[in-house]
């Protein structure tokens, strides 16, 4: 019973369980993206990630031409709680290597 529970993927949340203690990619609302190591989650997709890199798309203005363009802003956060209602998708780590 336990073996089956730990190994198989029957529903989406199983895939997230198998990503615990691994680095995952999270796409958030408002053009935000997170990469970090997953330590906790629940059925609402609330999560705790560590060593997080957040990438955010922002509208910037070119100082020479005055034209608007889409740039990215990055920041690093050691330990972060993410509220699940802002999550669009979660991508588990690549297991190709």
């Amino acid at each position: 019973m336990d073996k089956k529970e730990e190994g198989t993927v029957e529903e989406p949340l199983d895939l997230i369980r198998l990503s615990l203690d691994e680095r995952i990619f999270v796409k958030m609302r408002q053009d935000r993206e997170l990469k970090g190591k997953l330590h906790a989650y629940d059925q609402h997709l609330n999560m705790i990630l560590s060593d997080v890199e957040e990438t955010m798309k922002v509208v910037q203005i070119d100082s020479d031409t005055g034209e608007e363009f889409i740039g990215t802003e990055k920041r690093n956060i050691k330990m972060l709680f993410v509220r699940g209602d802002g999550v669009i998708l979660i991508s588990p780590p690549l297991r190709t290597s």
Partner: peptide, 27 residues
């Protein structure tokens, strides 16, 4: 709330992971 920045030193990640697995099983 969008995010909460946590004090890393006060977060026990091992316990969190165990609890996440337990709660998934209960669910």
């Amino acid at each position: 709330v969008r995010y909460v920045h946590l004090p890393a030193g006060d977060v026990d990640v091992e316990t969190l992971q165990d609890h996440s697995r337990l709660e998934a099983r209960e669910q």
